[in-house]
Design a protein around this nucleic acid. Sequence first.
RNA 1: CGGGGCGUAGCGCAGUCCGGUAGCGCACUACCUUGGGGUGGUAGGGGUCGCGGGUUCAAAUCCCGCCGUCCCGACCA
Length: 481
Amino acid sequence: MADSKALTTREADFSAWYNEVIMRAELADYSPVRGCMVIRPNGYAIWEQMQQALDRMFKDTGHQNAYFPLFIPQSFLSKEAEHVEGFAPELAVVTHGGGKELEEPLVVRPTSETIIYAMFSKWIQSYRDLPLLINQWANVVRWELRTRLFLRTTEFLWQEGHTAHATEAEAQDETLQILNLYRRFMEDWMAMPVVTGPKTDSEKFAGAIRTYSCEALMQDNRALQAGTSHALGQNFAKAFDVTFQTAEGGLDHVWSTSWGVSTRLVGGLIMTHGDDVGMVCPPRLAQWQVVIIPIWRKEEERDQTFAAAISLMGELRAAGIRVTADYRDMKPGAKYYEWEARGTPFRIELGPRDIAASSVMLARRLGGKESLPMAGLGDRLKTEMDTMQQGLLDQARARREAASLRNPASKEEFIAFIEKNGGFVYAGFCGDPAVEQEIKEQTKATIRCLPDPEFRSKTAPTTCIWTGRPAVVEALWARAY
RNA sequence: CGGGGCGUAGCGCAGUCCGGUAGCGCACUACCUUGGGGUGGUAGGGGUCGCGGGUUCAAAUCCCGCCGUCCCGACCA
């Protein structure tokens, strides 16, 4: 511990680096309850920005928010066979209430399909009630064996959409519309490029007929499942008797979908953009896009500087920039380190020299410091933010491509690449269980998804993070759409 | 549940082999100093050394038991 202020580098120990970034940026903390996370104000602010952006996108596509109970009767889970089988091992169960043992235990929701479809069956009578497009912002609990801050915690915050449709085609459109919405959010707001596509049967959601996911590649070259969208077919409709009268006068079960993203996205943001100084937050999701650091030597200078900072802050806020100022009595350098660790995109240093020259010193989180005239600063900052937002996306995409292998010539090349680099391998070995098993055992690689066409190699159709002969991929892919 | 590591101040750790006054860094409190990249100084607060038992004049240290926690495997938004 020669220098307790030095951050572990990503290169040296990614996991330790990740935890240190979270602690330094004061994003989250461990709680007294094992596996549960306390989200601190800085971390929650990022989640709030995400919520606002996503919520707007949901509303724009006709979805409405609602809220359903935290407790679900245990018997509800059992109504869908695959669903209960998938979630049983990770349920938290309430057996006592009001000092008495309950007649029927209540599970704390691991996801809300069951309670929501129980309600849908009361709400839906006619094809005129469809589609029913509902979203819920909520917390859920899954008793995972091993946890990591933001990425896999016992309790987490998320958004879960649940929709019911009259036809399979319409439900399928919804599933893909949301997948695309997620992708746009992750790329445009988080500057986190993703590969989209259907999951294999073994990886799909418990109870779904098809699962689509957004897969991102982190800086340790490991994949992160950032969001999922499920086509549930009529499975839950049949289990919960969600029927409607068709336009033709018949009776049918609805076709439903469900989809969600969680606070895991905050973890993804850290692992995508963070550097050896700490967090890097894309401007569009930053609580504070700009922080003003007043600098002074003497009392009279302080008053003058504070006044200038307040005035500048007012101007920038009027221009629609999220800006704050740090008036604390600390050395400027100490403040710089703190705001950099938090990931604040831009810092404005404002001292007597700048005020005299009607200029400011602008420092970018990604590096580079220059003196700019105070006039027109708002417009300049907006340009800077656009540049940074785009730069982060480009950088992340370039990193992903550098860590991707397309069309390995042999199983051996595939295994060697994964073992050496990790990353995404677009290849085609799935369909041969023996080879799949061998790769899994030797490399711990798994099939993330069967990439949508645009992500596949131009020379040959492939799948993401391992797969096989194009023909096999084509067959799986055809079945998924 | 299998294999391994660790429990000492809020955090990170030394001390344990070889028993003898409870330590260090960061953080915190007060004052002074400093202020365009973590300023320096002085003083200070904070511990049943994970829990229980045993050996001993004497246990953070040795012995036995228990508990907690972290990492690796099975699970995973």
